[in-house]
Computed example of a mutant assay.
Amino acid sequence: MESPQERRERRRAEKRQAIRVAAVRIALDQGLEAATVEAISAAADISPRTFFNYFASKEEALAPGPMWTPEEFIGLLQERPADEPAFESLKVVARTLAARLRPIMADMKPFAELRRRHPELAAKARAVDETKLMESLFGAVSGRPGVTSAVHARLLVIVAFGAAISAVQESLAGGGAVEDLLEEAFTLLENGL
């Protein structure tokens, strides 16, 4: 059962997504110039002031939301038993992330079309240094049991995300259950592909 805080966070995430969808719909249907804060706010049935509680700019609203944050990833990893091997911990974390990714990736087509039409949005929307984000994840994994080096930690993080994304994409394309496809992906990795 959801706690009040989890419910608030879920509702806030749903509102952010509704605003994003309204922004992208306007930009695709009427052009990027028509996607003003006022137009987006009206389409999302919020005030411009409320818009700025969720986004700093229209460009930020036109970018797909992050699929996860480093804090979420590290938090999920820290919830695992301290003596659990890194690969096993990452399997569990990947299951959680894959369950979150599927609905987000199912809604990505309009964002992809917008990026295709306006590639300049990608540069404007990238406010976070992805290298620093990944470094924090590598650092969190490097202290787990079974991790033998920094390269090993990097590979484990990259394969876990690759497995999660592959399972979600295959689920969207073929309709299989994400959980089953993720289990298959990790079994292939364990068996050396």
Rank of each mutant, 00 (worst) to 15 (best):
I19H: 02
N191I: 00
L155D: 09
A44L: 04
I19D: 00
E14W: 03
T148E: 15
Y54Q: 02
A23S: 04
P110G: 02
G65L: 05
G192N: 07
R102K: 15
F87S: 12
E84G: 05
R154F: 13
A163W: 05
A61G: 00
R144Q: 14
E88A: 04
A140D: 04
E113L: 14
A44Q: 02
A82F: 05
A56L: 12
L101G: 11
K58G: 06
A164Q: 00
R7W: 08
R25N: 10
Q5F: 09
E130D: 07
G65R: 08
A164Y: 02
A150Q: 15
G65V: 00
M134D: 08
E38A: 14
A122D: 10
E33C: 06
V92N: 01
L156A: 15
S57N: 05
V157D: 11
F161Y: 14
V128C: 09
F138C: 10
K109C: 01
G65N: 02
G65I: 08
Q78N: 14
A23H: 02
M105Q: 09
G176V: 00
R11M: 05
L121Q: 06
F51N: 05
G31N: 05
S47R: 08
M105C: 02
V157T: 13
L77W: 12
A42C: 08
S89H: 00
Q5T: 12
G146W: 04
L77N: 13
A99F: 04
A177S: 10
A86F: 06
A63E: 07
S136I: 03
K58H: 04
G146P: 10
A177Y: 07
P81D: 13
Q169I: 04
L133Q: 10
E79P: 01
A164E: 10
G143M: 09
R8M: 11
E2Y: 09
G75W: 14
F161S: 05
E88F: 05
E183V: 08
A185H: 10
E170F: 11
K91R: 15
E84I: 00
A122L: 13
A18W: 00
P81S: 10
L182I: 08
F87N: 04
A127T: 15
P4T: 06
A163N: 12
R80E: 14
S47D: 09
P85E: 13
T131K: 13
A82N: 06
R8T: 13
E84W: 01
L121W: 11
F87W: 09
Q30F: 09
A44Y: 05
P48C: 09
A39H: 08
P81E: 11
Q17I: 01
L172E: 00
R115K: 15
I26T: 02
A99Y: 07
S171F: 06
N191Y: 02
R25I: 06
D107Y: 01
W68R: 14
S57K: 01
R102V: 08
R100A: 09
R49Q: 11
F111T: 06
V168D: 04
T50I: 07
D83S: 13
K109N: 03
A140L: 06
V168Y: 04
G139Y: 12
P48T: 11
I26F: 01
F52L: 07
E38S: 13
V141H: 08
A61S: 04
L121D: 07
